[in-house]
Simulated scan of single mutants.
Amino acid sequence: MLLGHRGWKSDSTAEGYVETSVENKKIIATKITGSSVTHIEIYLSKKIPFYIIGYSFGTVVGLEMISLLEEKGYNGIMILIDGSPAYVTSSLKTQFAHETETQFQTAILTKVSSFVISFDVFTQYEEALLKSKDFDERMDLFLSVIPPETRNKQKLKKQAGVAVYNRLKAALNYTFKNKKIKSAVHLFKAKYPMVDEEDGYQLSKVCDNIAQVITIDGDHVSILNNPNLVKAVSKVVQLKS
């Protein structure tokens, strides 16, 4: 099972779901995992360890899921690829530095815009975004300045933007509140992290059995293309199978 963070285009169940009201609803990792556990439990055996691989924000979802499964008497192996609750929160606070909710929402749209339009074009609308009354209005303005052909090619839709906002908001406010995880946890971290964090990404606060911490050459994105990561993860699976 692979849980990952695929950004704007993702509509993965493991990632979350689209909210219809930004103000009244939130995406919470425990809600995601609670619904998922019911579906995957029929494929598990309490005699055979299961595997969960999580990348980026998916590590948070994965840890929540493995915690719920442990409560039901299952034992698993968690493989974390450059992520942990502390690391995800710290990196988001760095990438989307803000003092107000308005600044946070605008920072998200600024980040997304950097992939689809020039900085010069976006800065012309930045003040208007800050003055918009809420995220719904900001999304309307943001999408209006994206050329239709780019919007269609990148599948940029208001619904997806709201989903991204809610995921980031939930991650920023996330706190692991369950019992410490007993299952073995393997962390594969990037050599060039997004933020300075202790060697084990503070996993000792949520996990009792940290089997290994291995550094993979690359940054948060490029490590996914590093064949050494594939080999290292495969080795863990083969050793335990």
Rank of each mutant, 00 (worst) to 15 (best):
L3T: 01
G7M: 11
K9E: 04
K9I: 00
S10D: 12
S12L: 15
T13H: 13
T13L: 13
E15S: 09
V18E: 15
E19S: 09
T20Q: 10
T20W: 08
V22S: 11
K31D: 12
I32L: 04
T33Q: 00
T33V: 07
G34E: 09
G34V: 05
S35I: 05
H39N: 11
H39K: 15
E41K: 14
I42E: 15
Y43S: 02
S45Q: 06
S45F: 06
I48L: 12
Y51F: 13
Y51G: 12
Y55H: 14
G58W: 03
L68G: 11
L68H: 07
E71G: 10
E71F: 06
E71M: 08
E71T: 09
E71K: 14
K72T: 01
G73I: 01
Y74N: 06
N75D: 02
G76S: 08
I79K: 02
I81S: 10
D82V: 09
D82Q: 08
G83K: 04
P85D: 11
A86N: 11
Y87M: 01
S90K: 05
S91Q: 06
T94Q: 06
Q95Y: 05
Q95G: 03
Q95E: 01
Q95V: 00
E99Q: 02
T102Q: 07
Q103E: 14
Q105D: 12
I108R: 01
L109F: 03
L109H: 01
F115C: 06
I117T: 12
D120K: 04
F122V: 06
T123C: 07
Q124K: 04
Y125S: 08
A128V: 13
L130I: 02
K131P: 09
K131G: 07
K133D: 09
K133Y: 03
F135L: 14
E137G: 04
D140N: 08
L141N: 09
S144N: 10
V145K: 09
P147C: 15
P147E: 15
P148I: 08
E149V: 03
L156V: 14
K157R: 15
K157D: 15
K158A: 09
A160Q: 05
V162Y: 10
R167Q: 10
A170C: 13
T175G: 06
A184V: 01
A184E: 06
L187A: 03
F188H: 09
F188W: 10
A190I: 14
Y192K: 06
P193I: 11
M194E: 09
E197W: 00
D199C: 07
Q202G: 06
L203I: 08
L203Y: 03
C207K: 01
N209V: 15
A211K: 10
Q212M: 07
I216R: 07
D217K: 08
H220Q: 14
I223V: 02
I223D: 01
L224F: 13
N225M: 13
N226C: 00
V233A: 13
S241K: 12
